[in-house]
Design a protein around this nucleic acid. Sequence first.
DNA 1: CTGAAAGCGCTAACAG
DNA 2: CTGTTAGCGCTTTCAG
Lengths: 355, 355
Amino acid sequence: MSRRRVTISDVAELAGVSYQTVSRVVNNKPDVSESTRKRIQKIIKETGYRPSQIARSLVTARTATIGLVVPDISNPFFSAVARGVEQLAYSQGYSILLCNTGEDVTRELDVLHTLHERYVDGVIVCGLRQEDALLQEALANFKAAVLVNRRLQGEPVPAVLIDDELGGYLNTQHLIQLGHTAIGFLAGPAASYSGTQRRLGYSRALVEAGILLEEKWITNFTPTVSDGEAAAEVMLQANPELTALICHNDLMAVGALRYCAASGRRVPEDIAIIGFDDIMLATLVSPPLSTCHVPRVEVGRIAASMLIEQINDKADWSDEIVIQPHLVIRASTAAPAGVSDDAIMQPTPDHIPLG
Amino acid sequence: MSRRRVTISDVAELAGVSYQTVSRVVNNKPDVSESTRKRIQKIIKETGYRPSQIARSLVTARTATIGLVVPDISNPFFSAVARGVEQLAYSQGYSILLCNTGEDVTRELDVLHTLHERYVDGVIVCGLRQEDALLQEALANFKAAVLVNRRLQGEPVPAVLIDDELGGYLNTQHLIQLGHTAIGFLAGPAASYSGTQRRLGYSRALVEAGILLEEKWITNFTPTVSDGEAAAEVMLQANPELTALICHNDLMAVGALRYCAASGRRVPEDIAIIGFDDIMLATLVSPPLSTCHVPRVEVGRIAASMLIEQINDKADWSDEIVIQPHLVIRASTAAPAGVSDDAIMQPTPDHIPLG
DNA sequence: CTGAAAGCGCTAACAG
DNA sequence: CTGTTAGCGCTTTCAG
């Protein structure tokens, strides 16, 4: 049904003052007598007047809006980041323009153009596949920008990065400390930045422990449950010597869990399995999954606060924050058969097994 | 680093025409000679000129933006709806302003005010707890509005509703057809609209089958895994005659599954369990959960298309679309002990059990 | 085919 | 303390 919008002039007329005076009370500026201020406030309340951000933005060249670009908001990783971004932004008076790219590289530039046309004060950009130079060029249109989990060649753009290398290292080190030496790596897509980093951490931990890295112990799949299942099957049939699997993420790890259940392998007694991300699902499967926790909401909050600092000229374009993930040991990892339990710190399962 | 914005006048000056002419080519209007059009287009491309949506909105009173209000974007239900809204909106040239309310009733009105100030063309509102009259009042500020899964007293507001009553009915009917007669209902919070509806469907199916409804077979809990676990324990210990449990949602159903596993009850042989929503998790637990599927992305798409029709005056404020959920039979439901399998259509498990 | 003028609703200087 | 005058960058209307 919608009603007519009341403007600043309507209020001014009702109050019998110039609209300038109304503007002053709306913006809490001085130089208005208490009596007229009160009177105007009363009228504002009665009429339900709301200042037009549009008109305001046109003159101030600020929109109090930030653009958030993600591949897919229904992906739990990005929706958690979005939650964090929104939390912090809202507390500072900013609104969020949300853009999905649907993993489509053309659309990535597209939405950045849209955001530019809408004069957003800054953009937070997650998981884009766009090549460095073009992305750089597109971001130059904004007063402020923050990348999530990506670093650009050339001119630096502020970024919040997850230390995936460390995550891969921690996962691997955990298994090594339990006594594993034949550790497979179910990697994600070869092109993925975080995938590469996690794999580097895996290598570093092996080298540090003096374990030879076998190329055949690494395989690339899509990071989904069904691919994790397939990957585990391929891997364990080709390399029966493996006693542990490190998975690119929790979904793949759950897939691996399923394959093990289906093929009669016990986890963690026959095969130790560890994931990455620490999604809710990790706590619900059987056995509950050991994994590397990534604080996703925190990532969003930090990205937003970096962005707002840039907008306020309190930061420059070279900042970079690296977030450390940490191990969460549940029940899917344990010492391999044949290694005495006494020699090893054994995690206590904290969940009733399911099914 | 950000660069200076180029305006329509900059382009006009470079082209040696009035900015009017530039406006014409930008908006693909007639009455411009091919040669000047080409020339201007070239300059637009070179300078990277983008029209200011802000200025444009100020004069057209349209922002090509829709507000999306959700309690929590990191909740999979709402992020799926958001995905649907975004998909359709983007295809029609609209952008999304995303607002979380964090389940906070005050903030609900707050964000609606913000969206009003930003002149969004319409709002899609999901899962708000605000009382009818106040919500109604706040929505009257918008040219268009769509409610998701809520119906307002008084003036009708367009809504896309999920037929929860039908869902509850289908779930119950399924169990009755399998031969169950002692069917517990693990309900969600008593105040929840969809909860009430699902329960009504449960009653209807029982009545239809001539089964007496026992109040003690119904219990209210929070719709989480842990509460589902607790609810199942309370229910099954107090009512050992039960052979099936209907759960308010999949999370509770997973909790019930866990309790059964922990207490040595086999599912579906000893207890049949059915959920609601069909979240990803439902396919991954053991046994895979029978449930009632709610097409969440579709809900978002429909809401967006209804909204855009309203914006374009192609719809009025009384439309209402009801989405039918449907059964997904997996392996957590079967005939109760003592009922001959021959007499009953038995679902085939389509998933390898986990753990 | 093109330009000039007016105004969207507001803020930011200046005058009184 | 308050009002007046300019725009912000664009679309719309009306003259050329």
